[in-house]
């Protein structure tokens, strides 16, 4: 089963939930944790994973052989991103705008365009105890997060329980990380910010047709509106984590919740069971 952990709003506790859930399951089944928050991957801080494989990820960028080029302008005409321009007898390439679609090299009538890889980040794989840990790390100044996320997700093994830590927001990197998962766990906090961003994240899961459930973190710090929203929308609240200084301190030191306070282990195992039940119920409904 693939469970993605998202939130809309940042800083609600996605990584806290992802790491504790992975650790709780790791004694019982094969577990993979994929950190798909490639802009700011943090799960490694909690898992102290040893990395033993590192693979750079490249985006194919056009390269023009000016001895073959006739400056006809076809490449610039077909590029939807304005990443290539032909000015008199010069071809200008703007790698930061290129999506690597390959149209220019395929359609060049003189076959003057080849592609060369531009490194946009790396995928690292290692382990933390029994957990198979994979993370993507986007290079500074790069924008192609979704491309890197796709590469991280290639490591998914269908026989494992797979936990995906997702970035905040609701746009392309979130969609790329969440899509094709069996369940999406949305971590929120009981404030108007938490509610606003939760409702956006719920829309994403609905658009993707993925069942979702909610974890309320820092419970009782704010108001009741998140709970009311979940009841109205018929979204199960699967776990509540209280606003608690000890939990915040553990987090600040990079200590997973279920290691700092082992009593939480059972809560996370129950959370997993509830997710399983929700997934089977939604498969029946389909």
């Amino acid at each position: 089963m693939v469970i993605s952990i998202a939130s809309g709003k940042g800083g609600t506790g996605k990584t806290l939930v992802a790491t504790s859930l992975a650790l709780a399951l790791s004694g019982k089944s094969k577990v993979q944790l994929l950190d798909c928050d490639v802009e700011e991957p943090n799960a490694h801080i909690f898992l102290h994973s040893t990395i033993n494989q590192s693979q750079p990820v490249f985006l194919p960028i056009p390269k023009v052989d000016e001895t073959k080029c006739t400056y006809c302008g076809k490449c610039a005409e077909v590029c939807a991103y304005n990443a290539i321009a032909v000015v008199k007898e010069k071809v200008l390439i703007f790698p930061e705008l290129c999506h690597g679609c390959g149209a220019c090299s395929y359609l060049c009538p003189e076959s003057a365009i080849t592609e060369e890889g531009k490194e946009i980040g790396i995928v690292e794989r290692g382990n933390s105890g029994n957990i198979d840990f994979i993370q993507g790390k986007l290079n500074i100044g790069e924008i192609a997060a979704p491309h890197l996320i796709k590469k991280v997700k290639r490591y998914i093994e269908p026989t494992s329980e797979v936990i995906i830590d997702v970035s905040p927001g609701t746009s392309c990197p979130v969609v790329e990380a969440v899509k094709d998962s069996d369940f999406c766990l949305l971590v929120t906090e009981p404030t108007p910010f938490g509610l606003n961003d939760l409702s956006l994240a719920v829309e994403v899961t609905r658009k993707l047709g993925i069942p979702c459930g909610v974890v309320i973190n820092r419970d009782e710090a704010g108001d009741e509106k998140v709970e009311r929203y979940c009841h109205e929308q018929d979204i199960p609240i699967l776990l509540k984590i209280p606003l608690d200084r000890e939990i915040a301190e553990l987090y600040s030191k990079g200590i997973p919740l279920i290691e700092g306070i082992p009593a939480w282990r059972n809560s996370f195992l129950e959370l997993f069971q509830e997710i399983q039940q929700n997934v089977s119920a939604s498969q029946v409904a389909k």
Binding site: T15, E39, E40, I45, I140, G141, S252
Partner: peptide, 21 residues
């Protein structure tokens, strides 16, 4: 930023972006 290990790690990356630009 906030004084958590995650906060520090992410601060370092965003400082690098500011410097890059």
């Amino acid at each position: 930023t906030e004084p958590t290990l995650s906060g520090i790690h992410d601060l370092e990356r965003v400082i690098a972006v500011c410097r890059h630009f």
